[in-house]
C-alpha cells in the first residue's frame, strides 16, 4: 500500500513546486492511474514515492514505512520502472539482474533462476547475455520491469511503462498488471495512453501543474460525459444549426456537424428524421461517446 500525504517537491529555490501538496493512496490490489500533461508532476510524484529523489515536504508511506526516514526498509517492497530506464554501459542484462539481486540478499543460484524466469516473462530470455545499453527503448523498459520484480515487491510504481512498447508489449504489461492486482499488489501507473486506463485502472488521479484536480473511480470513467452524434450533410446553413441546437451542443466544421451532450437517447433517432424532413441530405452519420481523454482535456481547459 502506498500512502502519499501532502507531498511537495521543488527542485531548487527559484523554481515552482513540481508537486504541490498532493495526497492520495494506492491500496493493495488496486491499480491507480496517474494522468496529466507533460510537467504535471507525474514523474516527480513517482520518483519521490520510490525514494529516488527526496521530497521537499509531506510524507510517503510504503506499507506504513516512511520512505525517507526508513529508506532501506521501505525500499524492500518497491518495484520501480523509470520513464527512461538507463543501465550501466557494457553490462549484460543477466549480470545486471544478478547485481540487483544482491541488494535483497537472494542467494546467487536462486537469483540466477529467478532472473532468467523474469527475463523470460518479459520476453528478453534470448537477449539475457546482451549488453543492456544495446537494447531498444522498449527492451530497456522490459528489462527495467524485470529488475523491478526481482524481489517480488508488493508495491509497483510504473512511470510511463507503456511508452515505447509495441502492441504485444502493451498487451503483455496489461495482462501482468491484472495478474499483480489479483496478487494484491498496489500499482501506481502513470501513462499518456488514457484509453487503456479506462479498462484497467481502478481509479485515475488527474494532475495539473503539480496539483490533483480530479480523482475518478472506474465507474465514473465508464459513465463519463454524454453520447454524441456526428453527421455530414450536403449543405450547412444557419437554419440547420437552429434545428439541431434543440438536441444538444452543435459544432460545425465545413459539412461536418457534431452534436454533443444529447440528453435523451430517443433524440438520437429524431435527429436524422428531423434533418431529412427539413430538406437536408445526410451522407454520413455515426455515434460517438466522450472518452476519458476528452474528459481530461475538457477538465484542464484544452478542448479538442
Amino acid at each position: 500500500m502506498i500512502i502519499i500525504e501532502e507531498l511537495k517537491k521543488k527542485y531548487n529555490r527559484q523554481s515552482k513546486f513540481a508537486v504541490d501538496g498532493i495526497s492520495f493512496s494506492v491500496n493493495n490490489g488496486e491499480i491507480l492511474g496517474l494522468v496529466g500533461l507533460n510537467g504535471a508532476g507525474k514523474t516527480t510524484t513517482i520518483n519521490v514515492s520510490c525514494g529516488v529523489i527526496l521530497p521537499s515536504g509531506g510524507r510517503i508511506l510504503i506499507d506504513d514505512v516512511d520512505i525517507v526516514a526508513e529508506k532501506s526498509k521501505a525500499s524492500r517492497e518497491i518495484g520501480w520502472v523509470s520513464e527512461f530506464p538507463n543501465f550501466e554501459p557494457n553490462t549484460k542484462a543477466i549480470h545486471l539482474m544478478l547485481y540487483f539481486s544482491g541488494f535483497y540478499k537472494i542467494p546467487r543460484k536462486e537469483a540466477f533462476i529467478r532472473s532468467m524466469d523474469l527475463l523470460r516473462t518479459v520476453g528478453l530470455e534470448e537477449d539475457a547475455y546482451r549488453p543492456a545499453s544495446a537494447y531498444s527503448q522498449g527492451m530497456k523498459k522490459r528489462l527495467a520491469l524485470a529488475s523491478a520484480l526481482i524481489s517480488g515487491p508488493r508495491n509497483l510504481l510504473l512511470d510511463e511503462i507503456l511508452n515505447g512498447l509495441d502492441p504485444s508489449g502493451i498487451n503483455l504489461i496489461r495482462k501482468l498488471m491484472l495478474e499483480w492486482k489479483k496478487q494484491g499488489k498496489a500499482i501506481l501507473l502513470s501513462t499518456h495512453l488514457l484509453g487503456i486506463l479506462e479498462n484497467l485502472a481502478d481509479r485515475v488521479v488527474i494532475m495539473h501543474h503539480g496539483k490533483i484536480i480530479k480523482t475518478l473511480a472506474n465507474e465514473e470513467m465508464k459513465s463519463l460525459g454524454s453520447t454524441g452524434i456526428r453527421i455530414r450533410v450536403d449543405h450547412v446553413d444557419k437554419s440547420l444549426e437552429v434545428i439541431l441546437s434543440k438536441y444538444g451542443n452543435v459544432r460545425i466544421d465545413g459539412q461536418n456537424v457534431t452534436i454533443t451532450n444529447i440528453s435523451d437517447e430517443q433524440d438520437m433517432e429524431n435527429i436524422s428524421s428531423d434533418i431529412s424532413a427539413n430538406g437536408y441530405r445526410i451522407s454520413h452519420l455515426d455515434l460517438e461517446k466522450t472518452s476519458l481523454e476528452d474528459y481530461f482535456l475538457n477538465l484542464i481547459g484544452e478542448v479538442p
Binding site: 529516488v52 529508506k71 532501506s72 525500499s75 523509470s82 527512461f84 530506464p85 550501466e88 535483497y104 529488475s147
Partner: peptide
C-alpha cells in the same frame, strides 16, 4: 556519470540508504 545518466537511480531505489 551514473548519477547524471540515471543509472544510479536503479541502485538508489534498492534497499540501501542514499548515504550508503
Amino acid at each position: 556519470r551514473d548519477r547524471v545518466t540515471g543509472v544510479l537511480s536503479t541502485v538508489i531505489v534498492r534497499p540501501i540508504s542514499r548515504r550508503s
